[in-house]
Computed example of a mutant assay.
Amino acid sequence: MTRTQFLAKEGVKGIGIGILILVFAFIFELEIVVFFALFFLIVWACIFRNPERYPAERSENVVLAPCDGKIIDIQYQGGYITIVVRIDWVNVGLIRAPYATQNIEIKTSHGLKTTFLSSSIIEAMNTKIHFSSDKFDLMVIPEFFKSSFYALTDAYAADRIGFCKLGTLQVTFKDSFLDARINPGDEIKGGETILGYVK
């Protein structure tokens, strides 16, 4: 789990490679390579940034956004509410627990990583990573970068529990649990924006 580091652990390897290339190019005075290495390091640091987040409201009844992104759909079906969030390039990729939870199980259904196709094809073909717990369920459909949930047995609200950059996240609650206060089209920030309140 990542906590206060400037960079999420998923980006450490890329930063290390970029620094090695930069040092090599600097030693051998390869100015164009130095430029591109610096550019790569800046972009990579932005992609894998790991900011601290503080809830807009502190209360035991607050349910927080699990990630950065845009809400593209809210579905009510069979006594459950599912909030679908699009995570884009510019969004922070860390996934956070929307509420304190226990009895966590993580499963992966393997598939492809298709990006520039219709959302229905992506949902049918892509890898899916499932996070199940006693309070909520999450499903991530990554489209480019490797995504994962961290090996945890429990988590507090706003804890970092996984990573997804460029993809879709679905968070599901029992309808009897969540009084939702968000709408499709809303931009949210993980660990900060309030999705709603416990009923």
Rank of each mutant, 00 (worst) to 15 (best):
Cys67Arg: 01
Glu52Thr: 10
Leu64Phe: 09
Cys67Leu: 04
Ser59Phe: 12
Tyr54His: 13
Asn61His: 13
Val63Tyr: 02
Val92Tyr: 02
Glu60Val: 14
Arg86Phe: 08
Ala56Val: 03
Val90Asp: 01
Leu94Trp: 04
Tyr99Leu: 12
Trp89Thr: 04
Tyr80Thr: 08
Arg58Ser: 09
Glu60Lys: 15
Asn91Met: 06
Glu57Ala: 15
Val85Thr: 15
Ala97Arg: 06
Ile71Ser: 05
Val63Leu: 14
Val90Trp: 04
Thr82Ile: 07
Gly78Phe: 05
Pro55Ala: 00
Asp88Trp: 14
Val85Trp: 04
Asn61Glu: 08
Arg58Gly: 04
Ile95Glu: 12
Arg53Ser: 04
Pro55Lys: 08
Asn91Glu: 15
Arg96Gln: 08
Trp89Val: 11
Gly79Val: 07
Ser59Tyr: 09
Arg96Thr: 01
Asp68Gln: 01
Gly93Thr: 02
Cys67Trp: 02
Tyr80Glu: 14
Tyr76Asn: 13
Ala65Pro: 12
Arg86His: 13
Asn61Trp: 14
Asp88Thr: 14
Tyr99Asp: 02
Gln77Ser: 15
Ala65Gly: 10
Asn91Val: 05
Gln77His: 14
Trp89Ser: 09
Pro98Tyr: 07
Ile72Thr: 15
Lys70Gln: 15
Trp89Leu: 13
Val84Gly: 05
Asp73Gln: 13
Arg49Phe: 01
Ile81Ala: 08
Ala65Val: 05
Ser59Pro: 04
Asp73Cys: 05
Ala65Ser: 15
Arg96Trp: 03
Lys70Trp: 04
Ile71Thr: 05
Arg58Met: 10
Ala65Asn: 10
Thr82Pro: 13
Tyr99Arg: 11
Ile87His: 03
Tyr54Leu: 10
Asn91Arg: 08
Glu52Phe: 01
Val84Pro: 03
Ser59Gly: 07
Ile87Phe: 01
Asp68Trp: 00
Ile87Leu: 03
Ile87Trp: 01
Val90Arg: 07
Gly79Ile: 07
Ala97Gln: 07
Tyr54Arg: 14
Pro55Tyr: 01
Tyr76Trp: 13
Tyr76Pro: 00
Pro51Asp: 08
Gln77Pro: 00
Lys70Pro: 00
Leu64Glu: 03
Ala56Glu: 11
Ile74Thr: 02
Glu52Cys: 00
Ile81Thr: 11
Asp68Asn: 09
Trp89Ile: 09
Glu52Gly: 09
Asn91Trp: 10
Ile71Ala: 11
Val90Ile: 11
Ala65Tyr: 10
Glu60His: 12
Val84Ala: 06
Ser59Leu: 08
Leu64Gly: 07
Gly69Met: 03
Asn91Thr: 04
Ile87Met: 05
Pro66Tyr: 13
Arg58Leu: 14
Gln77Phe: 15
Tyr76Ile: 08
Asn50Thr: 12
Ala56Asp: 06
Gly78Ala: 08
Arg86Met: 06
